[in-house]
Every structure is written in structure tokens, then in C-alpha cells.
Design a protein around this nucleic acid. Structure first.
Length: 421
DNA sequence: TCTGGGGTCCTAGGACCC
DNA sequence: TCTGGGGTCCTAGGACCC
């Protein structure tokens, strides 16, 4: 029988912070999103205090005494780096590793024998803890959806399981599915969970009893696949991050609402430039550029407006000039004077490999010139820092720039540390 | 006062074709 | 007056994930 494993880093962003600051061990710690807006990672202590995932930072005080909680601004570059170290250790030990997110990867099990797999994976958990300092949980089962559930069990009972739990025997699967709330199943989100609960389906086990034709008619083929996976049929595939993206996006919520056209436009230019750089880094080109802007839907005192506009490029491109030029054109189509804006973004889609692009009849010369220019700029910036040569305005002090006050050197965090000592 | 960012997949419906 | 059926492609929007 083919078996899938899922490895999941525990409380990943918090664990990363603890690698560099052991004083955080044992403390209630949360990591905050951009603008210090909401909670995107919690230590076990923070979970125990009742702080929910996605909790807006200013509401932490409604769940507990905020002075007991260390709040940190996210440092995604550092998390990405630790993620790569974890993944490289996994890659050396098991096969067919598909990284699913920054802190998760699926893989296939090397042995027929379940005990042998268990021993291997328990040593993998210990090795990652020793070499990188990140605690992980691993589940394995005949399908990815069941492996996810198994990893939750491992995470919940680290002492009993050594961080590894397997769901292979039908009796064990039955028991665990009876104890798994329907909303904890991978692929069943808030909406579906509410709808199923209304029908009296509260657990994963009850969900597997529903007629599959009904599941398909009420919901979709995707939900029916989830049901089949719970019954042990391997049918969900994933798009590992190692294969090319279908889209590349860059967007930010602004620190506060902005009304000036130029300020919103400058943000769009910066997003477009970052997107174009990623295209070149990944050796792909985009076929269309979408720009979207929107107001602040929490502000009832302001008229709300949101819109997006997509432009197809005459020839797929990764040139900063081309991407920015079309992003500005799209921006001109969505921006309306007299509204306040809180977020903007640039989305590149129709992504294809940059080899063998179908050029338009008159594009060839221009395209080759732009290609050489972009290579030169990327090389210079690669050597001397990313902002030595830039195209188009690069207002690094823009009004829209996110605020991050919970960096470790910030006064507020220092106060928290002082309180800890 | 203060609510993230970056993705994927699926479906419904319209345009268009023969 | 009478006005099919089946197929493809595209897009917008909604659901999900971490």
C-alpha cells in the first residue's frame, strides 16, 4: 500500500522566533501580520489563553491580559530561511517531497513495514529539532487527507507519539474520524462546515457516511474527493511549490487610508516591480497584468469602492518596464477620485516559461534589448544591493508603507522584554 | 484608533461555433 | 408564426488552504 507522510512545523513562526531568542520559551507569544494587524501564529501558551487565529491585535485584550503576551512583528525572510533548512533535512531522508506551504511538506514512505517507517520518522523529528531547533509533527496514512489528520494527533500528543502518528488500520481510522470535528478536515472550511453541521454532520466519521452523489450535488467534486480521501481512496493531488506558479501577486494593506492618486499609484508601481523581479528570478513570463484597489470595508464613515482591471500583454514578458507600463494603464482604469483606499495589489497571470516565447512580428528587437537591460540591472543589484539601479519611481518612504512596531528592537517590545526580566 | 498576504481549484454563466 | 442541441472557451466569483 502506498503511504503518504505529512510533516508540519509546530507553531512555525513562533518556533522560528524562539530559535533566535530562547527567552521566548515557555512564554505566551504571538506573531502579527503586516501592519501588526492580526495574529498569524501562536505559541501553545497563547492558544491556551484563548487567543484565536486571525485575532485582530487590538482584540487580544478581550481574550486575556495583553501584558502576558509577547507580540512580535512577522519576519518572513527569516522564516523562509529556516523553512529551507527544515526542507533540506527532509529531502535527505525521504522521497518525493512536495513542499505544500512554508511549514509543511508531503512525501511518500520508503518502507512497506509500518514500524520501520515510524522509527525513521521519529529520528527525523529529533534531527530537525537538533539541527534547526524547530519542533515538528509527522503523520502518515494511505491518503494525504488522512495524513493531515494523523499529524494533528501527533501534534496534540507529542509525549505519547514522539511527534509521529500513523493512521493505517481501518479500526484506528474509524476511531480517530469519530473524534475529528468536521471543520478540522483539510478541505472543509467555515462555510462548508456550517452547512454540514446544519444537516447534522458534526464529525469526519459522519461525513464519510453521506451518500457521495449527494455530497457532489450539494457541494462540488472537490468536496466529494475529500470524502473519498477520508474513506482511504487516494485522489487529491497537490500543486507543489516547486512547480511553476499559475500566478504571482504582490499586494499590501496600507498603514492608513490614502486618497491621493499619486500615492496609490506609487504603491502599484512598487508592487509591479516586485512582481516583475520574481518573474525573472523564476525564469517565467506573464501574459496578463491585473491591478486591484479597494477601500477600507471596516470604515462605515467612508464611501466604499473596490475594483480591478486586467490587461493582456501583447507579448508575454518579465520586463519591469513592460509590467509597470501595463500596471499603470490598468490603474488608470480602476482609480476613482473622491474615494479612500486601504489596499492595492498587482497580480500577474498566464505565467509560462520564458523559453520559447511566441513573439509578435515587430517585437523581436525590442524584446531582446529589454531582456539584456533587465539582466544587466538584476546583475548590478545582485552585486551592490537591490536598490542601486531602479526603474520608475521607488518611493521607499511612501505613505502606504506598512507599519511594524513590534520588531524586537522596537520600544514596545523592549518594554515587554524588560517586564520579562 | 487598530482586522494579512499569497496562493489553488471549481463552478456558473455568457459568448461563440457548427 | 415557427427559433435545437451540443460543444468549447473564457471570465468572475466563491470556496478553500497556510
Amino acid at each position: 500500500m502506498k503511504l503518504y507522510g505529512l510533516i508540519d512545523c509546530n507553531n512555525f513562526f513562533v518556533s522560528c522566533e524562539r530559535v533566535f531568542n530562547p527567552m521566548l520559551n515557555g512564554r505566551s507569544v504571538v506573531v502579527l501580520s503586516n501592519n501588526d494587524g492580526c495574529v498569524i501564529a501562536r505559541s501553545n501558551e497563547a492558544k491556551a489563553m484563548g487567543i484565536p487565529m486571525g485575532c485582530p491585535a487590538f482584540q487580544i485584550k478581550t481574550h486575556c491580559d495583553p501584558r502576558q503576551v509577547v507580540q512580535l512583528s512577522a519576519r518572513h525572510i527569516m522564516y523562509h530561511d529556516l523553512s529551507q533548512r527544515v526542507m533540506s533535512i527532509i529531502g535527505a531522508e525521504v522521497e518525493n517531497v512536495d513542499q505544500y506551504s512554508v511549514d509543511e511538506a508531503f512525501f511518500t514512505l520508503p518502507y512497506e513495514d509500518i514500524e520501520r517507517n515510524h522509527v525513521l520518522l521519529a529520528s527525523l523529528v529529533a534531527k530537525i529539532k537538533q539541527y534547526v531547533g524547530i519542533p515538528v509533527s509527522i503523520g502518515f496514512a494511505p491518503t494525504r487527507t488522512l495524513a493531515k489528520i494523523a499529524s494533528h494527533v501527533a501534534k496534540k500528543h507529542p509525549r505519547i507519539t514522539d511527534g509521529v502518528y500513523w493512521l493505517v488500520r481501518p479500526e484506528a481510522i474509524d476511531i480517530i474520524l469519530q473524534r475529528t470535528p468536521i471543520g478540522d478536515v483539510w478541505g472543509i472550511g467555515r462555510r462548508l462546515s456550517a452547512s454540514l453541521t446544519e444537516r447534522g454532520i458534526n464529525t469526519a466519521a459522519q461525513f464519510t457516511q453521506m451518500p457521495s452523489a449527494l455530497v457532489r450535488r450539494l457541494y462540488s467534486v472537490a468536496v466529494e474527493r475529500t470524502q473519498r480521501e477520508l474513506k482511504g481512496e487516494d485522489c487529491v493531488s497537490i500543486n507543489p511549490v516547486t512547480v511553476a506558479h499559475n500566478s504571482i501577486m504582490n499586494s499590501r494593506t496600507f498603514a492608513h487610508v490614502i486618497t491621493k492618486r499619486n500615492e496609490v499609484r506609487d504603491a502599484v508601481v512598487v508592487f509591479a516591480k516586485m512582481c516583475a523581479k520574481r518573474l525573472r528570478d523564476e525564469h517565467v513570463v506573464a501574459g496578463s497584468v491585473t491591478v486591484y484597489i479597494r477601500g477600507d470595508h471596516h470604515r462605515e464613515d467612508l464611501p466604499y469602492y473596490a475594483n480591478s482591471f486586467q490587461i493582456k500583454l501583447p507579448t508575454p514578458s518579465s520586463s519591469t518596464m513592460t509590467i509597470v507600463q501595463h500596471a499603470l494603464q490598468a490603474f488608470g482604469n480602476v482609480f476613482r477620485e473622491g474615494f479612500s483606499y486601504r489596499k492595492a495589489g498587482v497580480l500577474l497571470s498566464d505565467i509560462t516559461s520564458s523559453h520559447g516565447i511566441q513573439l509578435g512580428l515587430f517585437d523581436t528587437k525590442d524584446y531582446a534589448r529589454q531582456q539584456r537591460l533587465m539582466e544587466a540591472i538584476d546583475n548590478i543589484n545582485g552585486h551592490y544591493g537591490s536598490h542601486v539601479v531602479t526603474l520608475a519611481p521607488d518611493d521607499s518612504k511612501g505613505e502606504w508603507r506598512p507599519e511594524k512596531s513590534h520588531f524586537q528592537e522596537s520600544s514596545r517590545t523592549l518594554r515587554i522584554y524588560t517586564a520579562m526580566l
